[in-house]
Design a protein around this nucleic acid. Sequence first.
DNA 1: TTTGCTATCATACTAAAGTACCAAAGCTTT
DNA 2: AAAGCTTTGGTACTTTAGTATGATAGCAAA
Lengths: 136, 136
Amino acid sequence: MKKTILAFSLLILALLLLFQFSKYSIVTGNAEIEIIFAVIAIVFFVVGYVIHKKSLTQKHMGQGDIDNDKIKALDISDREYEVLQLIHEGLSNKEIGEKLFLSESTIKTHVSSLLVKLNAKRRTQAIQIAKSQHII
Amino acid sequence: MKKTILAFSLLILALLLLFQFSKYSIVTGNAEIEIIFAVIAIVFFVVGYVIHKKSLTQKHMGQGDIDNDKIKALDISDREYEVLQLIHEGLSNKEIGEKLFLSESTIKTHVSSLLVKLNAKRRTQAIQIAKSQHII
DNA sequence: TTTGCTATCATACTAAAGTACCAAAGCTTT
DNA sequence: AAAGCTTTGGTACTTTAGTATGATAGCAAA
């Protein structure tokens, strides 16, 4: 965020300099007016392009990102959430256990409580609900 | 797509008129040079903003759309694809059967061949693979 | 018509998934 | 220290999921 502020400060500074240079050039007759127009047009075109890109990146983050508040609201613990992510990746309980160095029993316990908390009957349904709630 | 071409044609025309108007204003001394700069800057800022917005919208469509060619390439039949979609929605084989008016046996057959064609071991993995291949 | 393909369904089986209940270790908070 | 919490793990059980195999019906191309 600090980088963004710095970058925009520098950008505004550069634009002011461009303006001043343009005026000076016209007064001294060192540049064609069309060229100055073109430079300004190109610069602001790029600025507009980049700004929308940035805003949309943030928006995209907001859409695709996980809703941590929702996870807490659903009372899902850290471990349970880890298991949920691995379910989402298509792993079996056994594979999840191996990945987290836990027994299959423990995974089953976590999965069962996940299903209750997500109000799902199956792990596939849990994936769907989790996605609709933006917690995955 | 035709609308896009038309819109951009009109936009370019407007910009040319703006340029001509600017030059004329300077010659006749009817406008301040700063105002013309500002107008050009604003217009091109908006143009850059809108163009990026459009490009990203199209990109987003491309990501979310299904790749029908891929489905054919994987040799997935219509029925199998229907089953795949319902698996994705989190339904059990029995529920899928009831929804499609088929026996659970038939669904199992379809699911099995889907798993082979998608090179998946489980239905949850099939969902993941299908999504990564943009067929869901 | 014969061949080949798909869709359908069944049986029988194995393998996961999920439930219920219990229990102990570890950790905070009171 | 005792109470309360999560995490972990086990046993025993039921329910889904998935595999293997075979069989029938329909439909389209050779």
